[in-house]
């Protein structure tokens, strides 16, 4: 089970004054069960890229293969693809429309042609999955707070039971607490349901702690692709692309520059604590 992109190009508004090349020869392989962060500055093509993965945008040239099948084949069922590759857009709460949260979450499964009972069962477990308290389920989505609306919207995609879940900036506009809650929830979905997850973000801080692979986009191309520790080694390249390494990594690298022997390959606060303690104990022994 995998998604393969082969030299994908995408051009917006071809042939007019507004022409813009959004993707440039993007090749990529996504394996089952991966937890990937896609990072890039505004306009780097990350949102365009993910809309190709479920066939909402069609590449200007190049090929995309889902589980070994070409999704541009004539008899390929792209509607089914969209249920396998769930996509949560930026500000997904803007798509809520039903009178109650529960009915809205049922929308996806109902579109798949499932029975009412099955749809409701799925909505039930999806809402549980995103951790939205039951007291909100039968209220109008417009009465909920921002973070709660966002959970409801994510549940709406989750209820389709996708094999791959893509989230475009799921923490945009949330306060730090809401941000951590959503990200932890996503991480636990990855652990418990063994879902393949792609997390799009412009912030290294957001993804560094959770993902096991980072793809850095710059001007429509893939700049870096690898484990977080590998990617964060390229601090200058990242800064040139308008991105920064996580603050703790930066701190560790600064400390090292000043002659304190800590590992520069630190991405989370916990690791930083270990590294500093280690450096101290070495210091004491010496």
């Amino acid at each position: 089970m995998s998604i393969i992109l082969d030299k994908v190009d995408y051009v917006y508004n071809g042939g007019t004054a507004y022409e813009k090349r959004a993707l440039n020869q993007v090749s990529l392989k996504i394996q089952d069960g991966e937890f990937i962060g896609i990072i890039g500055h505004t306009g780097s093509g990350k949102s365009t890229l993910i809309q190709h993965l479920n066939g909402l945008l069609l590449a200007s040239s190049g090929g995309i293969y889902y589980n070994g099948r070409d999704i541009y084949e004539e008899d390929y069922d792209r509607k089914e693809l969209r249920s396998k590759v769930g996509l949560v857009f930026q500000y997904p709460e803007h798509q809520l429309f039903e009178p109650t949260v529960f009915a809205d979450v049922c929308f996806g499964p109902k579109n798949l042609g499932l029975s009412r009972k099955e749809s409701e069962l799925r909505a039930f477990s999806a809402l549980r999955g995103v951790g939205l308290p039951e007291e909100y389920w039968y209220r109008s989505p417009f009465e909920l707070s921002g973070g709660q609306k966002r959970r409801a919207a994510i549940a709406g995609v989750l209820a389709m039971k996708p094999e791959v879940l893509i989230l475009d900036e799921p923490t945009a506009g949330l306060d730090p607490l809401g941000r951590d809650e959503i990200l932890n929830q996503i991480a636990s979905m990855h652990r418990e349901l063994n879902m393949t997850i792609l997390l799009v973000s412009h912030s290294m801080e957001d993804v560094a702690e959770y993902v096991n692979r980072i793809i850095v986009m710059n001007q429509g191309s893939i700049l870096l692709d690898g484990a977080p520790k590998e990617v964060f080694r390229y601090r200058q390249e990242l800064e040139a692309a308008g991105l920064s390494v996580p603050q703790v990594t930066e701190l560790m690298q600064e400390l090292r520059d000043r002659g304190i022997p800590v590992s520069p390959e630190v991405t989370t606060l916990k690791e930083a604590k270990e590294a500093v303690l280690q450096a101290f104990s070495k210091h004491r022994q010496a």
Partner: peptide, 13 residues
């Protein structure tokens, strides 16, 4: 366009 895509992603037709 955005809302349409979001609903298409939820299987709307």
């Amino acid at each position: 366009d955005k809302i349409m895509k979001a609903q298409l992603a939820r299987g709307a037709d």
